[in-house]
Write a protein that binds this DNA or RNA. Structure first.
Lengths: 191, 191
DNA sequence: CTAGTTTTTGACCCGCAGTTCAAGAAGGGA
DNA sequence: TCCCTTCTTGAACTGCGGGTCAAAAACTAG
């Protein structure tokens, strides 16, 4: 019973994700969130408790959607190297083509809250580990398929690629496309 | 004539750098700066104009000291690969051993202001290019010394390494030492 | 010593960020 | 229908962030 919710919490979290992603955690005010979601500030507080708790939901959503995207891109036909190259290029294009270069929400959060906010730091690490797991699994499959040399350490290679991704998403804030594409090719030379 | 300055501007900029580095641009208030430097807010505004202008001086200082450090580390005796490995490890150790993992001021700034603040973005790119230049020069020298294969493209390799550095400094916010060391070794496998 | 110049400083101001709240609206159950 | 519960909303509150200012202090040239 009681008055029914006038909005879909999942939709609001998705809209909030866009806003946080574009403006950063500190750079997003409750007023911004109200405007972006079309829900009054008070209702947001009633539904989510605080800005920080809303942000937790946002990070969880980012983790889920990001993992799905990664999985989808890596599972298309092709060798491990081809698929990972496509994945990296996709991320770079995403940044470069958007109206604003917002980079990776997890990386942005790591730099903004990392060290100060233990909970956020843990969440960010978890997101990173999910990506590493997916990359490692794809490389492992490449080894089984015979398109990756057997002496390759899939996990080490996946951690290295994760590192490359983070680098690219920082570089994308200040450097241009060709440089980023060249970096991708250099990074993949060892696969 | 007139009343003499009661502080050394260079020293104040250096102290401000520490504060911005630890807390970020938005995370540092004029009050924080006053406390860190021992100079009253009003005096800081009189001397530097605004928080943003002070930050410009800070970035310039960061650029200079960073370049000096990099140059010093890369010019010690050893092969290009050895020197660059030492350089990367040095950066990682710096982050891990400090009381707070503050990462790289330029990378932090790129993520915090990149896209929003054109001037800051340009400055950050300039800092990155300085580092790339130094790395490329060292690799080039390695080629002349014969410890780097002649088919290596020094500039492409340097850009890639810059990317790796940025990745590491983001990773350092959330991951532990052994993982970072493994990434360094994987990244250097191509040299 | 005085006049003119530059610094220093804490008090003060405006605006906004994050949050709370009281009043009302929209439902369900008896 | 009346009550109870849950949601909605804008107003209001507190604190702090960035910045200004007037007065006093420290110096130098004449």
């Amino acid at each position: 019973m009681g008055r029914p919710k006038s909005f879909e919490p999942d939709v609001v979290v998705a809209q909030a994700m866009e806003t946080f992603w574009t403006n950063g955690y500190a750079g997003t005010s409750p007023a911004d969130l109200a405007e972006a979601t079309g829900v009054a500030k008070g209702s947001l507080y009633n539904a989510f408790g605080s800005k920080r708790e809303l942000f937790d939901k946002v990070l969880a959503l980012y983790d889920r959607t990001g993992s799905e995207m990664t999985e989808e891109l890596l599972s298309r036909p092709g060798t491990a190297k081809e698929r990972i190259r496509a994945y990296l290029r996709f991320l770079v294009d995403m940044d470069l083509n958007g109206p604003v270069r917002r980079g990776c929400l997890a990386a942005n959060t790591a730099l903004e809250l990392g060290g100060k906010d233990a909970e956020a730091t843990r969440t960010v690490r978890r997101i990173g580990e999910h990506t590493i797991d997916l990359l490692a699994a794809r490389i492992e499959q490449g080894r089984r398929d015979g398109d990756v040399a057997p002496e390759i350490d899939a996990r080490a290679q996946a951690q290295f690629l994760m590192n490359t991704v983070l680098g690219l998403r920082v570089m994308a804030k200040a450097f241009d496309g060709p440089a980023l594409y060249r970096i991708i090719d250099t990074a993949l030379a060892g696969l």
